[in-house]
Design a protein around this nucleic acid. Sequence first.
DNA 1: GTAAGTGTATTAAATCATCTGGTACAGTTT
DNA 2: AAACTGTACCAGATGATTTAATACACTTAC
Lengths: 127, 127
Amino acid sequence: MLTLNYRDSRPIYGQIKDGLRRMIVSGALEPGEKLPSIRAMAVDLAINPNTIQRAYAELEAEGFIYSVPGKGSYTAHGGGAARRPAPDPARERELIRRLRDAVAELRYLGLKDSEIIALMDESGVGQ
Amino acid sequence: MLTLNYRDSRPIYGQIKDGLRRMIVSGALEPGEKLPSIRAMAVDLAINPNTIQRAYAELEAEGFIYSVPGKGSYTAHGGGAARRPAPDPARERELIRRLRDAVAELRYLGLKDSEIIALMDESGVGQ
DNA sequence: GTAAGTGTATTAAATCATCTGGTACAGTTT
DNA sequence: AAACTGTACCAGATGATTTAATACACTTAC
């Protein structure tokens, strides 16, 4: 499900958070889908369960997943079709900042706006 | 010139790197412009000069600035008008990954592609 | 030439985030 | 009852980060 990169300077729990979040927002994981249990993923990744627990806890605090004691953890229902106010306005601002930072540096490398827009996904966007 | 956020979990030298890189790629600092000396910026930010030195050294290794012993540090000449091969292909791949991650999560929040494109800078892009 | 300022390098110590290991409790499922 | 689940806590080890204190060679200004 996920792979860890120990050369990466980012903490393990951060890599897990980013990996799961990407699968959730990209649709690779459907809303309400059951996630591997904390202990199961810990065995799968060969790391301590506490590290998975931290990743899950923060993802839940950020609204991407929810957990039911005794049952398991699941991807959140929400986001997708209709425009709705972001659960966390600070998160949306952060995303816009990252978007603009990436665009600015790609421009610095000489890419034209049309090329950047074409990079937004594999198939092209706004068409 | 820069401000530090001690609540931020990111290391100080990373905040300095990101801040300077943003000013360089956005054009806030012109190519060849002189940067504050390591010691001067250390005094300005009230931190140890070694921390500034680390940020400058890594920015130089990544091609955003260059330093002349005895003289000072300057923003690099390069990037801008013409399309050219990225000095670091891995860096360009990383930027594309960040762009797509931000776009995917903004879509998850319900933003339409046209809205995302309009967010790419303050005035709108591709028009 | 002297002084001040510059980048660069090195070493030691302190601090903090991160990760691990172990244990425990209450809930759910079979 | 047994196995699984999320949750919580604590102690210890490890590594990145930051500070502190020097030192050297070079450039610029006086």
